[in-house]
């Protein structure tokens, strides 16, 4: 129950932060990525100030034995820089540049009720599903 409430609160803060920060506006995101044109670097401050909070928190995680409500920390276990990581991140970057939406802002943007954003989210889920279906072929 408490775990569910924390997840809800975290979601609320996350969505509010994305909207306040400008991440839910694709024009803003594309302007951030448009380093060769009229570059709007403001979104760097979103990641920068988020990291200001998460850096000390994850330093604590490395020392702490367990989280406050769950049995253990569930952290990624993969360590190697495999081709899937690089190819996946590259593909993601291409899609991000086309639409100016990454997964968090796309979800948060559902609040605005735009059918195009809904299409993006449905296509995103289809892409994830397709990845699982083709993982045997592409590795």
């Amino acid at each position: 129950m408490k775990i569910a409430l924390v997840a809800l609160l975290a979601g609320l803060l996350f969505g509010a932060g994305l909207a306040l920060g400008g991440m839910t506006n694709p024009a803003k995101v594309v302007a951030f990525l448009d380093v060769g044109g009229r570059w709007d670097p403001s979104l760097a401050f979103v990641m920068g100030s988020a990291l200001l909070v998460t850096f000390p928190v994850f330093a604590w995680v490395r020392r702490a034995g367990r989280p406050l409500l769950a049995e253990r920390f569930q952290l990624p276990t993969k360590r190697d820089l495999d081709p899937q990581l690089l190819a996946g991140a590259a593909l993601f970057g291409i899609g991000w540049g086309i639409a100016g939406l990454c997964p968090g802002p796309a979800i948060a943007n559902l609040a605005a009720g735009s059918p195009e954003v809904l299409l993006f989210v449905v296509a995103m889920v289809a892409g994830m599903w397709l990845r699982d279906r083709t993982a045997a072929i592409t590795g």
Partner: peptide, 24 residues
């Protein structure tokens, strides 16, 4: 606004890992 939004996002990620042990 970007800096303020980032703080909220950082706080959300902090809650998830500190309490639930999860990556946001």
């Amino acid at each position: 606004r970007a800096a303020g939004g980032g703080l909220l996002i950082g706080l959300a990620a902090a809650l998830m890992i500190i309490f639930n042990g999860r990556i946001a």
